[in-house]
């Protein structure tokens, strides 16, 4: 079986190729195995973290779902915050993606840099700054503060994903609708929005995940009712019970679902971008 692109045969043959193969296989295992270990240990019967486990049970899931109510409460809070974050960042991000993806205008580079900055600046700086802001307006611990903060971090994903769809959008379709007498609002609702849908869906799933998995801001802002990440953090700092492994497994499952959904939607958006003629056909 030949796995290499034809023009790279010369590069990936011999010792160089063998070394590349070894590093790549080890690298992929390095990325994957720790996560697999957490999945396995979440089904452990041991009262403490031990790998490999001496037996299997569902006791840590029982603990998560039925015995310790703080876990489900935290998961519920995270779900509410992440959903609201996705809605808010998509509303702001969809609007911003339209001009950013379709036109050049002065200040565009600055706006793009501003959108990316929250992903680059240390989350601790952002978290402390937001903690300061929300302390002065007495909103620390509120869902609103968490949603507004998480939307900052989710916005770039919303804009990036909607941009892919927006670039693919054939403006002639909008012009045709205008020519047929539709008002701008109708054109947006009936033509633009449906065509942007794959990008919006992908953006929403990634924005949801960005919030659901966020730790540092939640440490400062979640107050007395922790998000799931904050609840796990507290547990890890104090006792490291295997319940965290059960919670982690659920988080990984949510990540995989959102990621696969997001990637499928994004590739649908991308396909449309590559085949604009078909979208424009009657």
């Amino acid at each position: 079986m030949n796995l290499t692109l034809p023009h790279y045969k010369s590069v990936t043959g011999g010792w160089t190729g063998a070394a590349l193969n070894v590093v790549t296989v080890l690298g992929v295992l390095f990325l994957l195995l720790p996560i697999v270990v957490v999945l396995v240990i979440s089904f452990s019967a041991d009262p403490y973290l031990r790998f490999p486990p001496s037996g299997f049970s569902l006791r840590w899931y029982r603990n998560f779902f039925f015995e310790d109510p703080t876990w489900l409460a935290a998961a519920g809070r995270s779900f509410v915050v992440a959903t609201a974050t996705a809605v808010l960042s998509l509303a702001l991000g969809t609007a911003a993606a339209m001009p950013l993806a379709r036109h050049r205008f002065p200040g565009k580079g600055g706006i793009e840099a501003l959108l990316l900055a929250p992903l680059i600046v240390s989350p601790m700086i952002t978290a402390i700054a937001l903690y300061g802001l929300f302390s002065t307006v007495k909103l620390v611990g509120t869902t609103a503060a968490l949603v507004l903060s998480h939307a900052i971090l989710a916005l770039p994903y919303a804009v990036m994903n909607v941009s892919v769809s927006a670039r693919a959008l054939d403006e002639r379709l909008e012009l045709a609708a205008r020519g047929l007498g539709a008002g701008p609002a109708t054109v947006f609702r009936r033509v633009t929005l449906p065509l942007l849908l794959p990008g919006i869906l992908a953006g929403a799933l990634f924005a949801f995940l960005a919030s659901f998995d966020e730790v540092v801001v939640a440490l400062f802002l979640s107050g007395l009712e922790p998000t799931l990440q904050k609840r796990m953090w507290d547990d890890i700092r104090l006792e490291i019970s295997p319940t965290v492994a059960a919670a982690s497994t659920l988080l990984v499952a949510i990540s995989v679902l959102c990621f696969v959904g997001g990637a499928l939607a994004a590739s649908a958006a991308d396909r449309r971008a590559r085949a604009p003629a078909r979208a424009a056909a009657p």
Binding site: P34, I35, F212, V215, Q229, M232, W233, I240, S255
Partner: peptide, 9 residues
């Protein structure tokens, strides 16, 4: 896209 905390754990 797997939670940072999960990977550290």
């Amino acid at each position: 896209w797997i939670s940072l905390l999960v990977r550290n754990y």
